[in-house]
Computed example of a mutant assay.
Amino acid sequence: MSDFTLADLERIVASRAEASPEESWTAKLIAGGQKKAAKKLGEEAVETVIAAIADDRENLTYEAADLMFHLLVVLKIAGIPLANVMTELERRTTKSGIAEKAARTDA
């Protein structure tokens, strides 16, 4: 198992965001703005779903990695640190998913 974490990926995204858009896909996405990055995230989400439905484990792994990367780019553009997302996930583990969803004001 790898010791690589999403926090490591977040640091790489931040570092590559400082590069020239001509030299870095990450910088190019960020330069394109949230709309472009979010669209790419959506494309990757669809590709992940297709791989899951097809029960294509190899492609699902590949697409899940793309999805996580693009999510971190979208979060970077929005100025939302991964730690905020992890805190929210941790908060949600204090009760069952069904109870947590029912407790949301928009549920």
Score class of each variant (00 low, 15 high):
Ala51Ile: 04
Val85Ile: 15
Arg57Phe: 05
Lys39Asn: 12
Glu23Gly: 10
Ala7Phe: 10
Ala31Asp: 12
Leu67Pro: 00
Leu9Gln: 13
Leu6Glu: 15
Leu29Thr: 02
Phe69Met: 11
Ala38Val: 07
Lys101Ile: 07
Glu58Tyr: 10
Gly79Thr: 10
Ser20Cys: 10
Leu6Gly: 10
Leu6Asn: 09
Leu29Tyr: 07
Val85Glu: 01
Ala64Gly: 07
Thr87Lys: 00
Leu60Glu: 14
Asp3Leu: 11
Ile98Trp: 05
Glu23Asn: 13
Arg57Ile: 08
Ala107His: 06
Arg91Thr: 02
Arg57Glu: 15
Thr105Glu: 06
Glu23Leu: 14
Arg91His: 05
Leu29Pro: 00
Gly79Trp: 00
Gly79Val: 09
Ala78His: 06
Leu6Ser: 08
Ala102Gln: 13
Gly42Ile: 07
Met1Val: 05
Lys28Cys: 08
Pro81Leu: 01
Leu72Ser: 06
Ser96Trp: 06
Glu100Gly: 03
Pro81Gly: 10
Arg11Glu: 12
Ala38Gln: 14
Ser2Trp: 03
Ile53Leu: 15
Thr61Cys: 12
Tyr62Trp: 13
Ala37Met: 10
Met1Gly: 14
Val74Lys: 01
Gly97Ala: 12
Thr105Cys: 01
Val46Ile: 12
Ala99Asn: 09
Leu89Val: 08
Ser15Pro: 00
Leu29Glu: 13
Glu58Asn: 10
Ile12Glu: 02
Ala64Gln: 07
Ile98Gln: 09
Asp66Met: 08
Asn84Trp: 07
Ala64Phe: 15
Lys28Trp: 04
Thr5Ala: 08
Leu41His: 02
Leu6Tyr: 08
Ile98Cys: 09
Ala38Pro: 00
Gly79Lys: 07
Asp8Pro: 02
His70Pro: 01
Asp3Met: 09
Asn84Phe: 07
Ala19Lys: 14
Ala27Leu: 06
Thr48Leu: 09
Asp106Gly: 03
Lys36Val: 11
Thr5Glu: 11
Glu44Gly: 09
Thr105Asn: 05
Glu43Tyr: 06
Thr48Met: 04
Trp25Asp: 04
Glu88Ile: 03
Ser96His: 11
His70Asn: 14
Glu63Gly: 12
Ala99Arg: 08
Ser96Leu: 06
Ile77Cys: 02
Asp106Glu: 15
Asn84Arg: 03
Val85Arg: 00
Ile53Phe: 15
Met86Glu: 12
Ile80His: 00
Gly79Pro: 06
Gly97Pro: 05
Gly79Glu: 06
Ile12Tyr: 02
Ala99Gly: 05
Thr26Ile: 15
Ala54Val: 04
Trp25His: 07
Arg91Glu: 06
Val73Asp: 02
Thr93Asn: 09
Leu71Asn: 01
Ala19Met: 13
Lys40Tyr: 02
Thr61Met: 11
Ser20His: 08
Leu75Pro: 04
Thr87Met: 00
Glu100Ser: 10
Ala99Lys: 10
Ala99Phe: 05
Gly79Asn: 11
Ile80Leu: 05
Ile30Phe: 04
Thr61Leu: 14
Ser20Trp: 02
Thr87Ala: 03
Arg104Met: 12
Ala78Met: 14
Ala52Val: 10
Glu23Val: 11
Thr61Trp: 03
Ala54Tyr: 01
Leu41Val: 05
Ala31Lys: 11
Phe69Ser: 11
Glu90Tyr: 01
Thr48Trp: 08
Ala52Trp: 14
Glu44Lys: 07
Ala17Pro: 04
Ala102Asn: 12
Val13Gly: 01
Met68Phe: 10
